[in-house]
Design a binder for these strands. Structure first.
Length: 224
DNA sequence: TCATTAAGCGTTG
DNA sequence: CAACGCTTAATGA
């Protein structure tokens, strides 16, 4: 169980719940920590919870048949996922890796399904999230053929600032260039070059140990 | 051959 | 002390 204040801070969807729903959610959630580089779960694991990132940064990816690592998405604090796996009662489709020291929240299955059956607000949130993710995965098809690394970096950053997935995410994010590279599937050097290009184009600003987005719209469309 | 990357190292904030 | 930038040697398309 986690504190009410903490839940409100790390799960914006909880703001929409009524008192009873909120209490149930709170009681059904536990938190766990992972250090940087650690696997949070492997593809094929049966993780029987709905999960959220409450601190840090994680990478959601898989390994292709040829043994190449493919990153599908990055999640930052406030990002919740795994509802698809839970609803379909499947094993996890992806590997989850903590890119730095990270804390994860786990909502048990019974609580998730209680909210799913009883809370209109929770369902609205899920539908919005599904819809947004669908858009992301459609973009992935194009993304795959689009070899330009700057465009990859731009879009990965834009995803971390998605206003639906993260309610008012702000303009700044503490993230190193190495972490951006890991998320975008490019090396540190290339991430650095791409970021400089984007900075020259006034789409973002590089700060030490972080970035500030100046034009989210352009970042999310970069390379079109 | 040419491009890309991981690794190491010096600098910086 | 971690992030950044640069060099270099290895890798591979």
């Amino acid at each position: 169980m986690i504190s009410a204040d903490h839940l409100r801070r790390v799960a914006f969807w909880s703001h929409d719940l009524n008192e009873d729903e909120f209490e149930r959610a709170r009681k059904g959630i536990v938190e766990k920590s992972f250090s940087g580089g650690a696997y949070i779960c492997h593809r094929g694991d049966r993780l029987d919870s709905w999960t959220g990132v409450t601190a840090g940064l994680i990478k959601l990816g898989t390994v292709s048949k040829t043994g190449k690592a493919v990153t599908l998405a990055g999640l930052r604090e406030g990002g919740w996922f795994g509802e698809g796996t839970l609803l379909k009662d499947e094993a996890r489709q992806y590997d989850l890796v903590a890119l730095r020291d990270t804390a994860m929240a786990y909502m048990n299955r019974a609580t998730f399904f209680w909210l799913f059956d009883n809370s209109a607000a929770f369902n609205r949130y899920l539908v919005r999230q599904f819809n947004e993710r669908l858009g992301q995965f459609i973009a992935l098809v194009e993304y795959d053929r689009m070899l330009d690394s700057t465009a990859r970096v731009a879009r990965n950053i834009a995803w971390l600032f998605n206003p639906v997935l993260y309610r008012n995410p702000g303009l700044h994010l503490e993230i190193s260039q190495e972490e951006i590279g890991a998320l975008s599937g490019v090396s540190r050097q290339v991430a650095n070059q791409s970021l400089k290009t984007l900075e020259n184009e006034k789409l973002l600003r590089l700060d030490r140990g972080g970035i500030t987005v100046l034009n989210l719209e352009a970042l999310s469309r970069y390379g079109e």
